[in-house]
Structures are given as C-alpha cells and as structure tokens.
C-alpha cells in the first residue's frame, strides 16, 4: 500500500533520516518505534508531504507521492496526527472536524455531508458532537482524540498516528491503543503508529520497525524485534514489557 524507498532527509549537515526503506501492507498496523530524536516524526513529515525528502521516493497505492504537497496527499487518502496536538483554537471542537471533513475530501461539496462525517469521526474517538463545545475545554487526552477525529474525518485509507510523547497515563494509553485497534478492525483503515514507549504498542501492532539515529535498525514481528540485540542495546535501561 505504502512503499518507502531509501528516503533521506537532512537539515543542514544533520541527517535526520538516512536511507530508510519499508513497506506498509493493506490492513496492517505497523508500529514505528525508536528513542527520542531517532527520526520517527521526521519520517511522518516526509510521507505526509510536510517536508520534502532530500533523497528517495514514497509511493502510495502504486503512485509516486514524493514531492506532492500535504493537501494533495491528504486527498489521496493519507491522514496524519501530530505528536503535539495542533487544534484550531479559534474554532469549536465540531468546527475543527467539519472543516477537516469538508476539505479533506476534494470531491466533497456538501457541508451537510461534511458535518455527518465529522459527527461520525467524533463518535468513533468518543468526543461530544454538540456544536457548543470549545477546544479549550479538552485536556491532553481529549486533544489527542481531536487529532484522531480530524484525521479520520478526511476518510483516509492510511492513517499515520503520531502518539509519541503522549503525556498520557497508563490507562489512557491502553485506551488509545484500543481505539487504534478498533479503527483498523471496524473502519478497515491501515495504520502506522509511532510511539517511543514500546510496552502498549507491542500488544497491538502486527509488525514493528525500529529507528535509531535516522536509520532502520530492525523490522519484523513484535516478538522477534523485542529480543533483537540491537534493539535491546538502543533501549538499554528501558523496560521492554511484553505482556
């Protein structure tokens, strides 16, 4: 579905992502992990068009999307969330999502339909659909959900979920994992899930990709990756919990 081929990104002399290649298969949940600063979010920005890669290509459903702008990539069916939530604070909660539903599908011309899709997305993530709710009333977990609702309202086939540095407690993280699982099984959306804590992620994902210093150091089934010596070295001191 998504084919990332030796993609690189450098900022000045700093190589943030170095020749990373991987594939995302239809219907799977791929976990993308790595310590802070390992290039996970940069990789997301490269796929979603926010950054232009300095090398390599990205293909989505057989189509080269490497140099397309972010709005086009969204229209093609890739939605993303941001690591640090970026709500539109001047708009209400519902307006945030209606806006995304309306502009996220370039064939959509009906505001009523956009509103229907927005309400559906809000229900999926468990946020209120009444028009009066302001963004300011949401806490950290609520803002994360809003990110997801906005992404889902654009009717994606591939969701790039950046959940790292969540600031969520354990229970909230379990809920988030549960939700991603449901999004895949109920809506049939393929997911790439970024996280820097391995614990919860390992239980949900089908495969894992590990980044360190911008390079891919491991890829495979969660069980295999967790016992990979290179991964253990990177995560030395971190608890690798596999329930």
């Amino acid at each position: 579905m998504l084919l990332v081929d030796s993609v690189s990104k450098s900022f000045g002399g700093f190589l943030a992502v170095n020749q990373v290649s991987f594939e995302v298969k239809q219907g799977e949940i791929l976990g993308l992990i790595g310590p802070n600063g390992s290039g996970k979010s940069t990789l997301f920005n490269l796929i979603s068009g926010t950054y232009k890669p300095t090398g390599g290509t990205v293909r989505f459903e057989q189509r080269d999307i490497t140099n397309l702008p972010p709005d086009r990539i969204c229209h093609l069916g890739i939605a993303r969330t941001f690591q640090i939530p970026r709500p539109f604070k001047k708009l209400s909660l519902l307006e945030n999502v209606v806006l995304s539903a309306y502009f996220g599908d370039d064939a959509l011309r009906s505001e009523a339909e956009a509103r229907r899709r927005a309400e559906q997305a809000l229900e999926t993530v468990g946020l209120p659909t009444d028009a009066g709710v302001s963004v300011q009333s949401l806490g950290a977990a609520g803002l994360k959900k809003l990110e997801l609702a906005r992404a889902l309202s654009t009717q994606p086939r591939l969701l790039l979920a950046d959940e790292s540095l969540g600031g969520l407690d354990h229970q909230e993280m379990e809920q988030a994992a549960d939700m991603l699982h449901r999004i895949r099984s109920d809506l049939g959306i393929t997911i790439v899930w970024v996280e820097h804590i391995m614990g919860v992620l390992m239980k949900v994902v089908d495969r894992v990709l590990v980044l360190d210093y911008g390079e891919k150091i491991a890829e495979g089934l969660p069980q295999a990756v967790a016992t990979d010596p290179k991964v253990i070295e990177v995560y030395l001191g971190d608890q690798i919990a596999l329930a």
Partner: peptide
C-alpha cells in the same frame, strides 16, 4: 473556517487537505 485555521497553523491546515 479554513482561513481561521490557516491564520492559526498553516501546517495543520494543509494536513487536513486545505490548499
């Protein structure tokens, strides 16, 4: 709504398909 969103955060606005 689109312009309101753009005035706040152009990157986030583009990510939900706004030109």
């Amino acid at each position: 709504s689109a312009l309101e969103a753009i005035s706040e955060d152009e990157v986030a606005a583009a990510s939900v398909g706004i030109h």
